[in-house]
């Protein structure tokens, strides 16, 4: 451990209400600890923010995957292992299960949570593009009440979100039809190696077509190409109402390139990321079933 632990305190609420009470009463911003797969890394690297930490791991109210009405509701503490194992997720929201399978190693998947991935807000978070592609909403909870924020309006900048200091992520809500099997979908992760690699580019695509073959639904979400995970709305609009053909693949690729802003960093270059993002999209479009 590089961090001196004397600067840290850890509190362990027994119930969600107790946790919300602590958040409401605290003057300083509390650090929320779920599976620890990000925070412990920061701690070990000596860059964790000292102060009061709230350990949410014991709050069973934040667990579980349920079908509620026409939504799938996931507790914020749902782990990647649970996502991989859930029949409901594998059947209705397969991109989420696929993304979960690419996160770290099994030990990380046992501890890492969907809520933690969202709260950490890394632009490279692997579960985030599928959530964007599935029109997820984030259920924020505080002592003041509950509110839902569409996930594509959740982040306000690099690792910054609309969540208030007294709010925590309680659940993630996804429309049941978002991953309808009548739609083509794909999850793409490109890392430095085949496993246990942070993404150079990560993407999730969902595409539906009307009876006449024109595109009537499109979601294209990317990670690691901008300061936050992004939905490429111009790209989506560009293909809606059109038939998929080589010309559309070409023109939509140009739109894609105009809509992302990747950077050079230790894992890759902006140039390679642009190339790979475009290629991932082109491959998906070329391989949409029934073309």
């Amino acid at each position: 451990m590089r961090a001196r632990l004397a600067g840290f305190s850890l509190e362990r609420p027994g119930t969600l209400d107790e946790a919300l009470g602590m958040l409401a009463a605290s003057k300083e911003r509390l650090t929320l600890l779920a599976g620890g797969t990000d925070l412990y890394v920061y701690l070990n690297a000596g860059v964790a923010r000292p102060g009061r930490w709230l350990d949410l791991w014991g709050l069973d109210e934040l667990r579980g995957i349920h079908e509620v009405g026409d939504h799938v509701v996931l507790g914020a503490l749902t782990t990647y292992t649970e996502l991989r194992a859930s029949e409901l997720i594998r059947g209705a929201l397969p991109l989420l299960a696929q993304a979960a399978a690419t996160v770290g190693a099994v030990a990380i998947q046992n501890r890492g949570t969907l809520g933690g991935n969202i709260a950490n807000g890394s632009p490279a978070g692997d579960s985030l593009p599928p959530l964007l592609a599935y029109d997820a909403e984030i259920g924020l909870r505080s002592a003041r009440g509950r509110r839902f924020v569409p996930f594509d309006r959740f982040y306000t900048g690099y690792r910054a979100s609309v969540a208030a200091p007294d709010e925590l992520i309680e659940q993630i809500r996804i429309p049941l039809g978002a991953g309808s099997s009548s739609r083509a979908c794909r999850f793409v992760k490109v890392g430095t190696r085949a496993a246990q690699a942070i993404s150079k580019v990560v993407a999730a695509f969902v595409l539906g077509r009307a009876g006449d073959g024109t595109v009537d639904h499109c979601r294209a979400a990317f990670g690691s190409v901008a300061p936050t995970p992004v939905r490429l709305r111009r790209l989506e609009q560009h293909v809606i109402g059109k038939r998929i053909d080589p010309a559309l693949i070409r023109t939509s690729s140009d739109v894609l390139l105009s809509e992302i802003a990747p950077i050079d960093d230790i894992r890759s270059t902006a140039r390679y990321r642009r190339f790979v993002a475009r290629t991932a999209w082109q491959r998906f479009m070329e391989e949409v079933p029934g073309l």
């Binding site: 430095t192 496993a195 246990q196 894992r267």
Partner: peptide, 11 residues
């Protein structure tokens, strides 16, 4: 080892 990548068994 986070950024200096050695092969995993999948590689």
């Amino acid at each position: 080892l986070l950024d200096y990548k050695i092969p995993t068994v999948l590689d």
